Simulated scan of single mutants.
Amino acid sequence: MPDHKHLTLKDHVRETQIFNQRLIIAAVLMAGLTLILVARMVYLQIINLSHFALLSENNRVSILPIPPTRGLIYDRNGILLAQNLPSFTLELVTEHMHDVNETIRQIGKLITLSEEDIKRFNKNRSHKRRFEGIPLRFRLNDSEVARIAVNQYRMPGVNIRATLTRHYPLGALGAHAIGYVGRINVEDLRSLDESNYSGTNYIGKTGIERAYEDQLHGRVGMQKVETNAQGKILRVLERTLPVPGKNLYLNLDVKLQAVAEAGFGDHTGALVAIDPRNGAVLALVSV
């Protein structure tokens, strides 16, 4: 039998229809995706512009407190009873840390950290905002400052802050009258104006230091700074200087105070020396 060859003829009309259908589907999909993209851009760039602009600004600009200088205390003859001496404090800004505990462990390899230091830090951490510095160690010596400074680039959020600490040049003389300052604790925070104690770690605890806390403390200042991604300050945009605390001049006479305290020796008792002309307290002893 003779071979018959089968010829397959293309249906160009049908193929054109299929091609056009696919082209229309692709065009519809592209148009839909474009509309979604445009809608998202409108939402980000127009509808929610202020929100995202604020987030961007907050990532770039930080508000930092400038603590005021505490006022000095003098006796009636101008003898200094309480002053401020420079000191270095190690602070952590947890906002810039991936793992706070790991950072503390690294710091512990460089300087001595006690359990009390870490416990106090964790307690204060619950009352501070993430962008605020939280003290970890106080009164670092020059060697400790140098070790932290050399390794600071490896530990984002670790800062060394130069502060002033309270010092009493006459030691225990008149201590029960003058009082002392101590670190702010959780109980203190309940009664304090936290906005005025930002960046401040000490408060008057007893005696004149406590009774005249409002006058001695002063008013906190603020500075708006621009930072990079690591939290490093690039420049200061705006600054409001703090108002230093007022100096106090007491009626107390430390020479008379020294004589009165020495007079008691090992005995217990109390003494108040008053100027009868005006009622000024010249010496106050309670042993």
Rank of each mutant, 00 (worst) to 15 (best):
L9E: 12
V93Y: 03
A146T: 10
E213S: 05
E116Q: 12
P135F: 11
H176A: 12
R105A: 15
P2G: 06
R130W: 10
L113E: 01
Q152F: 07
K205H: 10
L7H: 13
T163M: 15
L90C: 06
L248S: 00
N185P: 07
D99K: 01
A262M: 08
L55D: 12
L113Q: 01
R137I: 10
G279E: 09
Q152N: 11
V220N: 02
S126M: 09
R190P: 06
D11W: 01
G174C: 10
L256Q: 04
S191D: 11
S286E: 12
G245Y: 07
G32Q: 03
S62Q: 08
Y212W: 05
L170R: 03
G204S: 05
L256D: 04
V285H: 02
R105F: 09
D75A: 05
S195A: 14
P68V: 02
R137N: 04
D11Q: 02
A39H: 07
K119A: 13
V13T: 13
R190A: 14
S126E: 15
L33R: 03
K128D: 03
S286V: 11
L64E: 10
H167V: 11
R22F: 13
L81H: 00
Y212C: 00
G78Q: 03
P2K: 11
Y197P: 05
N58V: 09
V145H: 10
P135I: 05
Q215M: 11
I107Y: 01
G218E: 07
L170A: 07
V186H: 04
G171W: 04
K232D: 15
V13Y: 14
G231D: 06
G265W: 12
L234G: 07
E238H: 11
V13D: 15
G199H: 01
H267Q: 14
S143P: 09
H267M: 11
R277F: 08
V145Y: 11
R154T: 14
A175K: 13
K123P: 04
A162M: 13
R120N: 15
A27D: 08
E209F: 03
I36W: 07
E132T: 00
I63E: 06
R161I: 15
K123S: 14
G263R: 05
E95Y: 07
L189M: 11
V243W: 05
P68Y: 05
L29T: 13
R161V: 15
M155D: 03
I25L: 06
P67R: 00
R105N: 13
I178P: 02
E15M: 01
P2L: 10
V272A: 08
N124V: 03
L49A: 14
I107Q: 00
M155A: 03
I25Y: 01
T227L: 14
A149H: 10
H96S: 11
R239L: 13
N59F: 13
Q257V: 04
R154N: 14
I160V: 15
A82W: 01
T94W: 02
A53V: 08
R137Y: 08
F264W: 05
N278Y: 06
I233G: 08
A273E: 04
P276L: 10
P276V: 12
E115V: 02
H6F: 14
R14Q: 05
K5L: 14
I73W: 01
